[in-house]
């Protein structure tokens, strides 16, 4: 497990010393901040407009009208950004030949895959942590419910690690970062839009497509509901792609 720790640390350091992570985090915060500002502004104006009607006032809930859509927007931004964050993980090592160092050291493939996964997960964690500002803002000027907020973050985190798993796999099969990013972006988009075609797919296919869709499983979380199937879905997608990456590395050496 020493090798795992060494690789995780190296990945984190690489993210911290190269501009990629900073640029992506900045873009992420800019866009998500823009959404948050707009939603808060809209919520605020609605509150003022409805302040004379107690019935409508009771309907106005900051979790439902600000944080829930915000979490959905953030999940889409993550989908757009994560292929760019994960594309270099294996592709770059292949192109520069540093993979030869990794594979001839006394570390296992599993340690290499997990180390890289944890490195990228660190960036995800930092991103989500920084968006905590939006929650703090809510607590300062309103009184949002805590559980749906935390569940929303849990959902984003779970979705994020699944994105990383997919990105990691596509990075491992090519030495071109652009190809890696395109493939994982395509895969993520596909998993996003699957449920759309579910509407037209007929009764037998619809539940399957819905089950496979990324965002169907995210829906309930910002409302404070944690379904076991959702949890299992994200964890198994992550595990599946990490396993696929590891198997690919293993087979590559034997070809």
């Amino acid at each position: 497990m020493k090798g795992l720790w060494a690789i995780t640390k190296k990945e984190i350091k690489t993210y911290l010393t190269s501009p990629i992570a900073y640029v992506l985090i900045a873009v992420f915060l800019l866009i998500s901040g823009y959404f948050f500002y707009n939603m808060i502004w809209w919520f605020n104006s609605q509150s003022i407009a409805m302040s004379r009607n107690p019935y409508y006032m009771r309907q106005l809930n900051i979790n439902r009208f600000v944080y829930e859509p915000l979490f959905h927007n953030i999940s889409v931004i993550l989908l757009l950004i994560f292929p760019l964050l994960t594309m270099r993980l294996f592709a770059e090592e292949k192109r520069t030949g540093t993979e030869e160092l990794l594979y001839t050291s006394s570390v296992t493939n599993t340690e290499i895959v997990l180390g890289k996964f944890l490195g990228a997960t660190f960036v995800l964690f930092v991103m989500l942590l920084l968006t905590g500002v939006y929650a703090v803002f809510g607590y300062l000027y309103s009184s949002p419910e805590t559980i749906p907020l935390l569940m929303g973050y849990l959902g984003l985190f779970l979705m994020g690690i699944a994105f990383i798993g997919i990105g990691l796999f596509f990075s491992s099969i090519t030495e071109s970062q652009v190809v890696a990013a395109s493939l994982s972006f395509g895969m993520l988009l596909l998993l996003w839009v699957l449920s759309w075609s579910g509407q037209a797919a007929g009764p037998s296919l619809k539940p399957i497509l819905n089950y496979l869709s990324f965002f169907e499983h995210f829906k309930d979380m910002p409302r404070g509901v944690l379904n076991l199937t959702d949890l299992v879905y994200y964890l198994s997608v992550t595990y599946f792609f990490l396993f696929l990456t590891q198997s690919y590395l293993e087979s590559r050496r034997w070809r």
């Binding site: 190296k10 690489t14 010393t17 190269s18 520069t96 030949g97 540093t98 030869e100 160092l101 001839t104």
Partner: peptide
């Protein structure tokens, strides 16, 4: 200990 034909170096380190 192994030195490949192209030294496996991480430029940013």
């Amino acid at each position: 200990g192994y030195l490949p034909e192209i030294p496996p170096l991480y430029n940013e380190m």
